[in-house]
Every structure is written in C-alpha cells, then in structure tokens.
C-alpha cells in the first residue's frame, strides 16, 4: 500500500486517543486501538500500529492505550489543560507523524475526534473518510463503510491517495480487546510553536445531574412529545433504570426543555446504535429515524397505529404510554 506508493518506510496505522474528563482513556479510543490491530493483520507484513495521546498528563491514558497497542507516544502538552483540545492536539500529532511515511490515522467521530481529524486534514494535506460503521483492509488500504441518506444506503469507500489517510470511526464499531502483551510508552515533551492558534477555555460550566450517556448505551429508552413533560420523563427514567439503559429523546422533547440536548437522537442530535431502542410517544419522523434506525431491536409504544414508527419497529404496542409504561415497570421488577 502506501509504502510502495510513497517509495519507502513501513506504513503505520495510528490511533488518535481521546481522554475522559478524569484523564483516563476514552472507551472509543480502546475500540479504535483494537480496530487498528485488526487492520494491521489485514495489511500483512510490515504494517505497524501505534497510538498518540496528547494531554497535560498523558501517562495514565497512554499506559491504558498500551494494553491495546505495541507502541504509544504520549505528548505532554500543558496548553490543552486550559485550551480547547482539537487544534493544539492535532498540531502536536502532526509533528509526531511528519517524520513517518504516510499511513492511516483513526480518530473518533465525536466532537473532539472530528476537530482533530479536520485539523489534521489541513495540516497533513491528507484525505478523509468520515463516520465509519465498519473498516476493513482492502486491496490497497482501508475500506470504509458508512450509512448515508439517513441509513437507507450503505456505501463502501476507499482512498485514491498516496498521502495520509484519515478515518473517523463511530463508537461501538468493534469491541475493545486488549493485546496479548502490553506495549511501550514513549513520553515526549511538547516544545516549540504550535503554528495554530490555541483557543482559551475561560470557564467550565457543570450542568447538574448529567444523565447516563446515550453514546454507547446498550439499551436506550427514549421519549418524545407524547411523554408530555418532565414528570413523564421520570417514568421513562424508571423504565430505563429497570432495563439498565440510558434515556434518549426527540427534538420535540428537547426543544420543550424536558431533556438536555446531549440526549437528543437524530439528524441534529446523536446517532446511536443500541441493542434495544424503546420509543415512548415518538412518531418516528425521518429526522429522528436517521439517528436510531440501526438499533438491534426497536420497540415502540404509541397510541396511533399509523405513526411512522410502526413501519420500522420490530414490535409496537398500540396504547397509552403511561399505562403501558407503568405496567412495564411492574412487569420488569426491580433490577
């Protein structure tokens, strides 16, 4: 692949790691690392994998990442402690990569991953494929699947480019599995000008009672306009608790102020792929559907048998969501 095209060196498959607010490794980064190993196996002899962590104190996350990858470069960058992460981190990542033959870069498809990917696209003059739902090694490099047109079509794309190939990958595309043996961690001090403006964080506002994240929830119980208000969402929450799931919502419920935007599913919210999606009082408008239609099992409760969600649910209860919801809490019993 790239080695031949570029005439030298061993192509690397690089993982751009993200950290949680407490400094630990993000779950999606462990998934990317696992994916990188699978791709290297597909690429055959000579393919190497490595990870990059850029943080004020990258050590912990880097050691965690090294349980998945043979080599991790930890860049100590104090600037990202009080500056937005994307631009300065990408600038440091580009410094690490520039010495290497052009390879593959895997980044998350979430807010930080896309900032880094977009910045690297500009810095490395590379190519990008986004929002991957599956990545495999094709004849000449990564082969990337993504859902388009609200999931009505799945496309496979490849790179037609000898330079850096960036792929942003959705959560839950693979299950994270540690490597047989832990890799090495190489600490590097960041030095020199970033070459890009860093954006200062002047304040951090904590929102009270942040809910369980829907991003990689196995089960999501979602409510729509039919839920009627914040009290109704307490019932949604109770069902989610019984199932061990997270609470999601439609834009109608978010616009009404019943649920924070972080829990919105759909075109301008999040795209999720839980094993179970339980929809209460949701009509199933196309802008909502695009965010959840790849769920393993879809169950809906709606009093309208002609609601669009009936067309893509696996099971629909025609009835009142409050009555059915309360009965379901009873039926499921305490967890």
């Amino acid at each position: 692949m790239a080695a031949a095209a570029d005439g030298g060196g061993t192509p690397g498959i690089w993982v751009i790691a993200e950290t949680n607010p407490d400094g630990s490794l993000a779950k999606t980064s462990a998934e990317l690392a696992t994916l990188a190993r699978t791709l290297a196996d597909g690429a055959g002899t000579g393919a190497t994998t490595a990870g990059i962590v850029v943080a004020p104190k990258p050590g912990g996350a880097a050691r965690e990442l090294a349980t998945y990858l043979p080599r991790v470069i930890a860049v100590v960058e104090p600037v990202v402690a009080d500056h937005a992460w994307g631009q300065p981190a990408a600038a440091r990542i580009a410094e690490v990569l520039r010495g290497d033959p052009a390879g593959v870069i895997l980044a998350g498809a979430g807010p930080d991953g896309r900032d880094a990917a977009g910045t690297l696209l500009g810095l490395l003059d590379g190519a990008v494929l986004v929002n991957a739902t599956a990545v495999s090694w094709g004849q000449a490099g990564p082969q990337v699947e993504m859902g388009v047109f609200g999931g009505r079509l799945i496309t496979t794309s490849t790179f037609a480019h000898g330079g850096w190939k960036i792929v942003t990958v959705r959560p839950n595309v693979v299950t994270a599995v540690t490597a047989a043996s832990a890799g090495s961690v190489e600490m590097r001090a960041a030095s020199g000008d970033l070459g890009l403006p860093a954006v200062r964080v002047v304040d951090r506002i904590e929102e009270a009672g942040a809910a369980v994240s829907i991003d990689d929830a196995r089960i999501i119980v979602a409510g729509g306009r039919g839920v009627g208000g914040p009290e109704g969402f307490q019932l949604v929450q109770r069902i989610a608790d019984r199932l061990g799931g997270a609470v999601g919502a439609t834009r109608a419920a978010v616009d009404a102020g019943w649920v924070p935007y972080a829990q919105q599913i759909g075109q301008t919210g999040k795209i999720v792929k839980p094993q179970l999606y339980l929809a209460l009082g949701i009509s199933g408008a196309i802008q909502h559907k695009v965010g959840m239609q790849t769920a393993g099992t879809i169950v809906a409760v709606n009093r309208d048998p002609d609601a669009p969600i009936a067309e893509f649910a696996d099971l629909i209860v025609i009835g009142d969501l409050f009555e059915v919801g309360r009965a379901l809490v009873e039926e499921l019993g305490p967890r």
Partner: peptide, 30 residues
C-alpha cells in the same frame, strides 16, 4: 482523494409485531 466503490441497501426489518389490549397484557408481551 476518496472514491465510493460499492453500495448496498441494508436488510429491511420485517413487519412489526403489533400488540393491542390491556396495559398489563401488553407489558407482559413486551
């Protein structure tokens, strides 16, 4: 620098099982 090489339609979901009746019965069926 990228090319779409293939496309496919995801498998359609089968028709939904429709549940009517009393709330406790429906909950039990779910």
């Amino acid at each position: 620098r990228t090319t779409v090489t293939d496309k496919r339609t995801p498998p359609a979901r089968g028709a939904a099982r429709v549940v009517r009746g009393s709330a406790p019965d429906a909950a039990r069926e779910v």
